[in-house]
Design a protein around this nucleic acid. Sequence first.
RNA 1: UGGCCCGUAGUUCAACUGGCGGAACGCCUGGUUUUGGUCCAGGAGGUUGCAGGUUCAAGUCCUGCCGGGCCAGCCA
Length: 565
Amino acid sequence: MKSQDDVPSKKSNFITDQIDADIQSGRFNGRVQTRFPPEPNGYLHVGHAKAICLNHSIAKDYSGLFNLRYDDTNPVTENSEFVTGMREDIQWLLEEDLESTPLHTSEYFDQLYAWAEELIMDGKAYVDSQDGETISEQRGGFQEPGVNSPYRDRSIEENLGLFRDMRSGKFSDGECVLRAKISMSHDNMNMRDPIMYRIRHENHFRTGGEWCIYPTYDWAHGQSDAIEKVTHSLCSLEFDSHRELYDWFLDQLGIEGADRPYQTEFARLNFTHTVLSKRLLKHLIEEKIVDGWDDPRMPTLRGFRKRGYPATAIRSFCEHIGVARTNGTHEIELLESFVRNDLNQSAERRMAVLNPLRVTITNWPEGHVEMRTAVNNPEDDSAGNREIPFSGSLFIERDDFMENPEPKYYRLSPGREVRLRYGYFITCNDVVKDEEGNPIEILCTYDPETSGGKAPDGRKIKATIHWVSAEHAIDGSVALYERLFSTEHPGDETGEPLDDVNLESKSILEGTKLEPSIGDLPPGSIVQFERLGYFHLDEEAPLLFHKTVGLRDEWANIVKRRKNA
RNA sequence: UGGCCCGUAGUUCAACUGGCGGAACGCCUGGUUUUGGUCCAGGAGGUUGCAGGUUCAAGUCCUGCCGGGCCAGCCA
């Protein structure tokens, strides 16, 4: 007997366990607030999608708040193009408007500055007038403690004066920094008097020339969380060693109780055959290996969108994989299976011949054309039907004919009969070849008794293939994509991921033959070309399709297995 | 040769916090099918990194090893 227990409840994980405990103990008075804090210096990729979905769904599940906060603390790399782009991508992914308007760390510069002076007055921060190289040397190593800066014991008055001079622009870039006064012999390198402010005489895309000192991530992040009343600050594993510093700053400022956020780290998302580092992604663009951030081969949200990956599929994927603290790499096939699964339900079917081979039906009445009725989506009755013209001159897929059929190949070959989907049974009688012996035309006869693809004598047919009427077909182009990186773990062999880049990962087929109704598809449509895969009609270029993902292909598996044997 | 984090099926995650190790994807077999798709049924695949210890009982707790990751930016 079914009970409410059978209703799949949200997957629990170490983060939701913590939140449950916090609610139990009343730590935040039952409040839950998360945030997604991207730095606007590039476009978002699937790795970010995991973080967005996680933070967003936690807020939703606990009736809490989810903020988008641009972490714009470094004016040299950030700009407003990325701010706009990220917003678009997030809205596309979530398919809903953000409840709160996007926030910016730069909105907190005044508060951050005031707090910094507070720390100086408490003797917990000082201005160091050494250059970066010296500071770096003095930090020590994993086994050796660092040494104190000669400026570490400046008086509070001197520090305050110097810090105000930093702010007012008396110093040039790199002349001095504000450092937290913690310990130069701490086991955790992040605690060895970390830098809080550095000087950048640089125009900031939001605050313009108002500031010439900018807070570092460590100084800005936890405090921004606190200002926004974030409860659960989720970030990726590499920030684990920063948590101690995150807590230290909050301690010094006396931010306690229900006002005090805490950081929890989780493993970021990785995929086989993929790189997700911004450095590498930018390199692919700069070197023109791909066509830009929205190239369908890119693991960016814009790339996925152009490729035809539905946002719903990405969200279900993210929900499915959950969160953990184990560093691992997902097989890209798993994401693809979510895309197929989604599109199988939603995408209408059409017939398209990518590599055309002419078929002439020799016993077809000259000039005769018949309209055949085809189902738009067998998974969705409401999608209805459409009409497709059938004639005596057709195109079929080159792969659907083999002159000397291999074992287990049961499509068309001389003497063999196949079904044309929604059409008739045809038998191959003859092959016309060019000088090199390549088949250029197949001569067949059709069985008039098999109209609609049913044989009155009940005779079984092994294969059904797709087709398009030659005189009615419209021409289109199809962009085919392979993995951008040929190896599962790019760079594993040589240490350089770019060595494994597949320079032939994109190919464009011109002169593909499409059934007439495809001409009516609105830009952006995603359809299944029967027996081939899912294809996304470009938003701008007419009749240009991007291959989203292929159908599972048993025959391809057989061929592959044979090759490996 | 420091500190911290992590090791469960090929991959990614579960296992009611000490009580007979499961799922998804992938793979294989069969069924259905006018898509070699979908769907349905079944199967293979594990010394829970290794070695000890505690316990009636350990994936779970303890110790030691081994392996992987992160940390010495005025990046985030």
